[in-house]
Design a protein around this nucleic acid. Sequence first.
DNA 1: CAAAAATAAATGAACGTTCATTCATAATTA
DNA 2: TAATTATGAATGAACGTTCATTTATTTTTG
Lengths: 192, 192
Amino acid sequence: MCTVSKSQIKREALVKATVNLVNNNGFHAAPMSKIAKMANVSPGTIYLYYKNKQDLINQVYIEVKTAFTKFAFKDYEENFSVEKGFKNIWKNLAEFKLKEVEEAMFLSQCDNTPMIDEPSRKEGLKHLQPLLDLWERGQKEGIIKPVSPYMLYAFSIYPIAFLMNMQQRELIKLTPAHVNDAYEMAWSSIKI
Amino acid sequence: MCTVSKSQIKREALVKATVNLVNNNGFHAAPMSKIAKMANVSPGTIYLYYKNKQDLINQVYIEVKTAFTKFAFKDYEENFSVEKGFKNIWKNLAEFKLKEVEEAMFLSQCDNTPMIDEPSRKEGLKHLQPLLDLWERGQKEGIIKPVSPYMLYAFSIYPIAFLMNMQQRELIKLTPAHVNDAYEMAWSSIKI
DNA sequence: CAAAAATAAATGAACGTTCATTCATAATTA
DNA sequence: TAATTATGAATGAACGTTCATTTATTTTTG
């Protein structure tokens, strides 16, 4: 038997509602009243959990980002070879982005707008360290191109968000074969 | 002597103001009143040029996107080799994204939010055709990986936006050497 | 070529609506 | 029942948009 506090349930409902509304209409069309209604909560209740709308968005961002990065490393082990480790993490990231579309779209929107404040952005990046460590190891081993992690991220991870976007807009349909192609492109851009 | 109509000047001022405000605060914090003030125009005047706020955003998007793609092909010739042609276009895109930061940030925001409606998105893509043609030729010649243009775009072009974002947030500083590294990564991800 | 008339462009105060936020009250819990 | 949690109507600020009016430009007239 597992107990979850009532307030935790409300928080989760609020997170879900916020993600959903911001996702489909953008920040500017996700009023607190609608978020409250969708979460089956009164508008006033939101302010028991969050200081204001900005705080709500920031916290939701951090929560979703944390879930995202947790998922990325769920079965990762530090003694993996660089190539195997990268493949493992990359596939997880892709799986998340293509299956948890709601969350992923929300993150993509947050990461490309001034919606989130800088401290929360920093906070959201915390859990990415294992990937950075892996890349550093790869560079020491002469396997990974000797460029900044931002560059590695830009070419191997960031593109997944684009593909997800295109799939969401029904401009492409990503089969497992396509995902494999994408992985090969990611790897070939960062390997020496 | 070159004559520019007064209304064109106003339009340009409005475009500039819209880009600037949406850029720094997001769509939700770019009220018509502020846009008007920044463009030295009365709020009412905006509605002589644009049907409503959505229409303003859509049109500004198309205008900026067109400028962006025009810049991409400014010195491109169809008889270039695939590799030379791609390098040419890529460098132009990078130059635009890193020099016309305001416009580029605005586009990045538009492309990752539900801010712009679908018809305007389609319109904005129109002028990218030469790049798609080049890729197709490259695929026929066995130089470019046989994957969809969306995939090629995701891995070779889209990453530039990420790097631009990071530079804007002062997390990296892109020297010409870095831009070259980035180009090599873009090319290695799409070449066979 | 002035002066007058007509048209067009631009204004900004005002309107109705929507929003984030508050708070007096109610429900729940322990 | 005292304390905690939740409610939702109320509030005032801010928003997009309108429109009666003013200002600028063009056309017509004598």
